[in-house]
């Protein structure tokens, strides 16, 4: 018991930080892919598809990520499905992120000025051609700052995976603290590492936003 913080502890924390990054990437990629489909469904010409996807977004946004984690990790095994912590955490984050990115991106699609859609329609482009060649390239420009900003939320939310036994940064801190009993020191270190991961992204998002300002203005007047 006890002892003091040494290189091994720091290695362990570093390892946890890597898993935090890994889990964030899983959430971003999985959630990004699913979120893109959600965003397309939200602006679908079919009313049913729009309603279903809106329902999904409302449902997920109205449920704490922690509860989604509990459901996948503890709920599914009760139904006879074996779930590893990584799978449970990855799947939960994907579900969670898809609802938020889907809604952010829907807004981005819709903020491409209406006349752009009409011009593309007037040129006889099909719906998918309009989407891929006219709307999407403009929406991506609008979507980049809020998407990078949301990545900060993803990174912080991976800490919830500790409750399903997934050893990421927060959980590895807990484990070390259990042997060292230096909560203030350990959790300060954890906080600093989270901050070091998130702050550059926040700054980057902010820079994209200020740089994107005039570009967006052009889109509106064009």
């Amino acid at each position: 018991m006890g002892g003091s913080l040494n290189a091994n502890h720091l290695m362990f924390l570093g390892y946890g930080a890597l898993w935090t990054i890994g889990l964030s990437l899983i959430g971003l990629l999985g959630g990004g892919f699913a979120g893109f489909i959600i965003a397309l469904c939200r602006i679908s010409p079919s009313r049913i598809v729009r309603l279903l996807s809106a329902g999904y977004v409302q449902l997920i946004q109205g449920t704490p990520l922690l509860v989604i984690m509990f459901l996948t990790y503890f709920g599914l095994p009760a139904l006879g499905v074996t779930v590893f912590p990584l799978t449970a955490a990855g799947a939960s984050l994907t579900i969670f992120v898809s609802a938020y990115l889907g809604e952010i991106w829907r807004g981005c699609f819709e903020s491409v000025p209406r006349p752009q859609w009409e011009a593309a329609e007037g040129l006889a482009l099909s719906r998918s051609q309009r989407m891929m060649k006219v709307i999407l390239p403009q929406a991506v420009r609008i979507a980049t700052p809020p998407t990078v900003g949301f990545m900060v939320q993803i990174i912080k939310n991976t800490s919830l995976a500790s409750v399903v036994g997934f050893v990421e940064l927060a959980r590895s801190g807990q484990i070390i603290n259990n042997s060292l009993f230096e909560p203030f020191l350990i959790y300060t270190i954890i906080a600093v590492i989270y901050f070091a991961l998130c702050y550059p992204l926040s700054r980057f998002s902010h820079r994209l936003e200020t740089r994107g300002g005039p570009a967006r203005l052009e889109l509106e007047t064009a």
Partner: peptide, 15 residues
């Protein structure tokens, strides 16, 4: 729309 060309007040070129 292949037979009809339309030009709008706000040009609507793709930026």
């Amino acid at each position: 729309r292949q037979d009809v060309g339309i030009v709008f007040q706000s040009y609507n070129l793709f930026p």
